[in-house]
């Protein structure tokens, strides 16, 4: 059974460490990379196969445009955009529009990651 390839670009660092720990505890997931600036995802995804991207930006400005570009280039990609202070998560995926999870927990994040299309 292939593992789910996860790449993330998350801030603040403490949340990034928590997310890394959460994903590393899952036997069906693997972290294939982490970038500091979300914009670096564009080049990173061109060289590394990724199923799910997790972004926790400092500012939401410009993020929807970045997500659109990533989805245009990678049709099967799923993007989890965790809002500032983790009050919610937007899930972007080609053909599925945008979904929203309020007050995300570890469980809801894992469920969202596992919903990756085959």
């Amino acid at each position: 059974m292939p593992k789910i390839n996860v790449m993330f670009s998350s801030r603040p660092k403490l949340l990034s460490d928590v997310l890394r720990n959460l994903i590393e505890r899952q036997p069906d997931m693997i972290i294939v990379g982490e970038v500091i600036d979300p914009i670096e995802l564009i080049s990173a995804l061109r060289t590394t196969p990724v199923d799910v991207v997790i972004i926790t930006p400092h500012k939401a400005n410009g993020m929807p445009r970045l997500c659109t570009q990533l989805l245009n280039e990678h049709l099967k990609l799923r993007i989890l955009l965790i809002t500032l202070e983790s009050t919610g998560v937007y899930i972007y995926q080609s053909g599925s529009g945008r979904k929203y999870i309020e007050k995300p927990s570890e469980r809801s994040i894992l469920d969202a990651i596992r919903d990756t299309p085959e």
């Binding site: 949340l15 959460l22 965790i82």
Partner: peptide, 13 residues
Amino acid sequence: DDNCLLLEGLVIM
């Protein structure tokens, strides 16, 4: 912390 995700993660870690 009112950030559930961070709270749950910190409890475990």
